[in-house]
Design a protein around this nucleic acid. Structure first.
Lengths: 298, 298
DNA sequence: CCCGATCATTCCCAACAGGAATAAATCATA
DNA sequence: TATGATTTATTCCTGTTGGGAATGATCGGG
C-alpha cells in the first residue's frame, strides 16, 4: 500500500470530515479509505481519528501527523510539478560529445540555434575525438564519425562525410604526382591515428579495391591539425571534407587520385537506449536531424 | 508499490552508487530495486540515472528529485519518530469526562497523582453530569455513575457508590420521622433529576421491594447542590456516599429508613472501543483501577 | 421505530511486489 | 582475443494485497 496515497487519504478525511467524502474525492471506494487509515494507524501505532459512523475527529496524534503529512505531500507534489514543468520545456544540463574539428566547423550554427530556442537548457559541449563512455561522463548524446563499434547505444544516422586525398603544390613540387594508390608508398603520408585503418589506406576504383600500406612519419589525432600539417607541405593526407573543401576550391590543395574513391564515413548521433529520453536531448537530436543537410559542403 | 520505499531506494542508490549495494542495505533483492527505480522514473516521466551495468550517475532530474526525496523521507521519518517517542511516554491532550461532584470529591487525588506521574500529558477534565457523546467531544475516557445505557462503548467497572436517604434534624424537627418508604409521601423530597428513577424511589427490605412515589418540590441535577439543599433543611434526599458521609458522621445528617436499602450505583469508566487506545488514556485508566479503592468512604 | 447515512468487515478477484533464474553488458585480466 | 567477475534488466512464478461489492453495525433524525 502506497503510504503517500494513505497520507493523502488521511488529509482528505481530516479536511472533509468524512471517509465517504474523501473516498469520492479521491475517486476510490469507501472501504479503501477505511483500510488506508487503518494502515496508517498501524504504521504509527496510534489512533488517528476518534470516530463513529457520524462523527470524525482527529486525535492529538492525528493533528500532529496532519501537519507532517501536508508537508510530505507538498514535497512530493512539488517534486512532481518540478519535474513535469521542466518536461514541458527542455531544461537541465545537456552534455554532448562532439568530434572536435567537425564540431567547430559544422555544428556551431546548430548549437547557436539550439541555445536560442531552448534558453532553459545549459549546454555542456565536450569536444573530443575520443569515443567517450557516455554513461560514465554523463553525456546524453554524442556525434560520431566513422564506423560504429558495436555497442548498446542507439545510433541515428545524420549524414555522410566525404574524404579527399590532398596535398599542396608546395609539397608535390619536384615529386612524382601519384597516379595509383601504390605510388603513395613513395610519399610522406600524414595519418589520422584514430581510425582503425591507420596503417593502410583503402581505395576503390572501377578495377576494384586497392590497399596502400602507409608509412608516414606523422600521426595525428585531430583533423584540423592534419589539415595544418598539409598546409605546411608536410605530406599527403586524407582529409574530411570540411578540412579539404576550402583548400581545394582555392587551389591551395590538390585533389590526388581523383579516379580512386575513398570510402566516405558515416556521421551518427548516438545515445544510450532508455525508456525516458530527456526532452533536452530529444530536441537537440531533432534539431540535428532537421539541420543534417548542413553537415556537408556541396 | 510504496512510493516512500521507492524514494528510499532511490536515495540509497544515488548515495551508494549501485543498485545491488542499495538492495542489500535495504534488505531486498536487486530486482526489487531495479523495479522501484523504474517505477519512480515512470512516475515522474523522466530518467533518474544514466546507468550501465557498471556505472550509475544521476541525471539532472535525478539530482533535483534527490533533494526533494531527502526532504520527504526526513518528514516521514520525523512523523514516525514524533509519534513513536510520544508513545513511549504518554503525551498529548487527554480529555476526560467526569461527574461533577464525584470528581471534585474523589478524583482529585488521582488526578494529582496522574499529572505528577505523566508530565507530558495535558489533562482536560470536563466536569459534567451529562453522559456526553465521547467521540463528538473528543473525550477519550469518561466516568459514569449509574446503570449504563447500552452502547458500543467499552465499560470497566471501578466500584460501587452507596446511597443514603438523609435529612437534617432541622428539617425533621416537628415532622414525623418516616418509618417506611410509604411515609415519604408526606415529606419534601429532593430529587436528583438525572436518574431514570426520578419520580420514584425504590427500597429493598427483608419484606421485599418498596416503591415510594415522590412529589418533592425540588429537582436538582447536581449532587453537591442537593447536599446543600438538605443542609438548608429543604427536605429529604438520596445522597451518594461522598455527599452524605461527612454529614452523617458529624450528626448534621440523619440516616433515614436504615432498615431499607437503596440500590447502590455502579461506577464505570467507559471509552470507545479502538484498536489503538492511546497510552495516556490507558495509563489513566490503569491508575483509576489501581486507586479504585479510594472511590468510597468506608 | 423506521430510515438514511456512515463506517467496519468480509469475501472475492485481479494486480502486483518480490525473488530465483537467466540474459545481457561492461570491465578487468590473462 | 578470450575469459571471468560483476552488475543491471528481464522473465517467470508465486504469495500477497489492494480494491470494490455486498453486508453488517451503528448513529442520528423524523
Amino acid at each position: 500500500m502506497d503510504r503517500i496515497d494513505c497520507l493523502r487519504a488521511f488529509v482528505r478525511c481530516l479536511e472533509g470530515g468524512s471517509f465517504s467524502v474523501a473516498a469520492s474525492e479521491l475517486g476510490i471506494g469507501q472501504p479503501a479509505v477505511s483500510k488506508r487509515i487503518a494502515l496508517l494507524e498501524s504504521e504509527f501505532g496510534t489512533q488517528l481519528f476518534f470516530r463513529t459512523t457520524r462523527k470524525l475527529r482527529p486525535t492529538p496524534e492525528g493533528h500532529r501527523i496532519y501537519d507532517l503529512a501536508r508537508q510530505i505531500l507538498a514535497s512530493f507534489d512539488q517534486a512532481r510539478v518540478n519535474i513535469e514543468e521542466n518536461s514541458l520545456r527542455p531544461s537541465g544540463t545537456l552534455r554532448v560529445s562532439v568530434p572536435s574539428s567537425f564540431g567547430r566547423r559544422y555544428l556551431m550554427p546548430v548549437i547557436a540555434e539550439y541555445v536560442r530556442a531552448y534558453p532553459g537548457v545549459r549546454l555542456d559541449l565536450r569536444f573530443s575525438e575520443r569515443f567517450v563512455n557516455l554513461v560514465e561522463e554523463g553525456v546524453e548524446l554524442a556525434l560520431r564519425i566513422g564506423k560504429l563499434e558495436s555497442s548498446t547505444l542507439v545510433a541515428r544516422r545524420l549524414g555522410t562525410v566525404q574524404r579527399y586525398l590532398v596535398a599542396t603544390p608546395g609539397y608535390l613540387g619536384g615529386r612524382a604526382i601519384p597516379r595509383t594508390p601504390e605510388d603513395l608508398d613513395a610519399h610522406q603520408c600524414i595519418v589520422y591515428s584514430r581510425l582503425s585503418s591507420a596503417s593502410e589506406w583503402i581505395f576503390e576504383s572501377e578495377h576494384g579495391r586497392h590497399v596502400a600500406s602507409i608509412n608516414g612519419p606523422l600521426l595525428v589525432d585531430d583533423a584540423d591539425a592534419m589539415q595544418e600539417a598539409v598546409m605546411q607541405h608536410l605530406g599527403i593526407a586524407i582529409l574530411p571534407e570540411w578540412c579539404a573543401v576550402a583548400g581545394l576550391r582555392s587551389g591551395q590543395f590538390k585533389n590526388l587520385l581523383p579516379d580512386f574513391s575513398i570510402a566516405a564515413l558515416p556521421l551518427h548521433a548516438v545515445y544510450p537506449e532508455t525508456h525516458w529520453m530527456s526532452l533536452r536531448a530529444r530536441s537537440f537530436l531533432d534539431l540535428l536531424i532537421k539541420r543534417s543537410g548542413q553537415f556537408s559542403t556541396p
